[in-house]
């Protein structure tokens, strides 16, 4: 693996780890953040979050990453990875 790929993966991993920690701590989930798979679904048969949890999560991501998820926009709220997509895009936009 070359250095460029290694760096991109390390960046993604750090964002995923922070999101998992935020999820578990803010929503008091009964999981160790380390066991959450990146593609774990937030609702339904995944973590089974509800609308109150979703609001908490939006607040948490804003506090931790400065990312504003529009209320009612469900596209980023599907899996841990889709949350990471939004955070990564925001970081890229800020760096540009």
């Amino acid at each position: 693996m070359d250095e460029a790929l290694r760096a991109r993966i390390a960046h993604r991993k750090s964002i995923l780890a922070a999101i998992k920690q935020e999820l578990v701590e803010r929503l008091q989930l009964d999981f160790d953040p380390a066991i959450l798979d990146d593609d774990t679904f937030l609702f339904g048969s995944g973590l089974a979050l509800d609308s109150i949890d979703a609001m908490e999560l939006i607040i948490g991501l804003q506090a931790r990453f400065g990312v504003e998820l529009p209320e009612g926009d469900l596209a980023p709220m599907r899996t841990i990875n889709t949350l990471a997509d939004v955070v990564c895009a925001d970081v890229r936009a800020a760096a540009a």
Binding site: M1, R8, I9, R12, K13, D38, N81, A84, C88
Partner: peptide, 8 residues
């Protein structure tokens, strides 16, 4: 697993 990340 070392390569299984999004955006690559």
């Amino acid at each position: 697993v070392d390569y299984a990340y999004v955006g690559l």
